[in-house]
Design a protein around this nucleic acid. Structure first.
Lengths: 253, 253
DNA sequence: CGAAGGCTTGATAGACCTCAAACACAGTGG
DNA sequence: CCACTGTGTTTGAGGTCTATCAAGCCTTCG
């Protein structure tokens, strides 16, 4: 498992090294999903959990009227459907947004693992609690903040989580965040996302392009989003970028 | 522990009877909170978890601009701050909405308990997963549904959860659901909640009075809310009321 | 180079908010 | 028993944020 993203598996989550080694060894050989493929489906009962090693995925709930709400994003090191270990059937859908590598942990193996290493159960339980904290934050974001604040907040969250996963390049990140995706995540329409993004760009805060996000003014953006990373708990305890670095050459042009 | 509400502690959550007895015995003597009192506070690190035995509470996040978002409601049998066992400090506030009885489970006792009864750890982990499912559903509710649908959905959820806790009286429930509360829970304003409630009443679906909710047409209300109780998982496996019972004498007048 | 998907922009409409005031109702004190 | 007070409900008028509809443009990729 040579992926930088796996840092989180081996160093994060309060695992001892014996635990993280046992965890890593329990994972099967990875499989690759293309962008658009579904990794876990609503209504299905799983007999294994999917660990996202590399790539990027979204959790969605599709409504009867066809429109989809994104519930959160899945980043390297996260589990896609951890809850299926205890709760079936699965109640939303996880799909890849770019080529994504997934390793499986069969429930039977998982159960044996947490019996042998009770500390691991607590680590994964803790992971689900952090996920829940993110859901709560999104609820607050969507319910109480306007479009401008909402988008800023979301871009900040992704930045900090990408940073915690060791995937930050200068002050930006390379993710396929289409405007439709941002709309589905914030409960807005593409048209309005487009206009709001233009404003954020004009104000020199952030530029969102089809395949990458460049943050020009972290302090400005996190102020605009009323962003406080506390809710991400240990998922994001790394450094927060200092004052106002202009290091976006790699992502601007 | 003579409370009907404690059914859930002893029969729910997949606990074996040995486990639920051990759990019940680990709880300290209850304390009562008056309406408005805070049971757990944002920013504080707890060394015990609070179990709600009787009463009704809300989870809130207060914004800088003063307005508060309700994240979910806490019903008898639920834990108020289960996450503090693994995640500190606490990231929102829980406060009583009526006289509420709380029993405490010190973290040290809790840890010992789950070491002796590993199955209990899974039961509580599962409880946090169901909480997370409720947060996701609220996010979808707030982000994608209009006021009319949103309110119907919320009233359905509370009905089903109250039913699972054994607290349903005819086709209604006695909870102090002020319009301001419903507004904070749905991300609407009191004024708009008032108008929407009037519409729901005129259509013969439900009547919300300061201290009780009377459902006149369950099928109609759950259709109006696009309500599907699946996300509540076992938290609500009881009966769903049959066709169209007109049994609301006790709550109407 | 043409197709497809995503981005951009304009004009119009609607759901919900804001402000403001009147109205019910339960509990309190005289 | 009745004013009194406070909290919560109800109603009206006007404003705004965001959605909807529609069309043109750009970029990527086979």
């Amino acid at each position: 498992m040579p992926h930088a993203a796996l840092l989180r598996l081996t160093s994060g989550f309060d695992m001892t090294s014996a635990e993280s080694v046992a965890y890593a060894e329990a994972l099967g050989t990875p499989r690759t999903f293309a962008a658009g493929e579904e990794i876990a489906r609503e209504g299905e009962s799983a007999d294994r959990c999917a660990v996202l090693l590399e790539g990027f995925a979204k959790r969605t709930r599709v409504q009867a009227d066809g429109n989809a709400q994104i519930l959160s994003f899945v980043l390297p090191g996260d589990m896609c459907d951890l809850q299926t270990l205890l709760l079936n059937p699965f109640d939303h859908t996880v799909s890849a947004l770019m080529p994504t590598r997934i390793a499986y942990l069969p429930h039977a193996v998982f159960r044996r693992l947490i019996v042998q290493h009770p500390g691991l159960a607590l680590s994964f339980w803790r992971e689900s609690l952090i996920d829940a904290a993110i859901f709560r934050e999104w609820m607050v974001n969507i319910a109480t903040r306007d479009a401008y604040t909402r988008l800023s907040h979301l871009l900040c969250e992704i930045y900090v989580r990408m940073d915690a996963a060791g995937l930050i390049d200068k002050l930006g990140y390379g993710l396929p965040l289409s405007q439709q995706l941002l709309a589905d995540a914030t409960g807005l329409t593409v048209v309005h996302v487009n206009r709001t993004l233009k404003r954020l760009k004009n104000e020199g805060l952030v530029t969102v392009r089809p395949r990458a996000v460049a943050i020009h003014d972290w302090n400005g953006l996190s102020a605009a989003g009323g962003f406080n990373p506390a809710y991400l708990h240990s998922k994001a305890v790394r450094k927060v970028p200092a004052a106002a670095p202009a290091a976006d050459q790699g992502l601007m042009h």
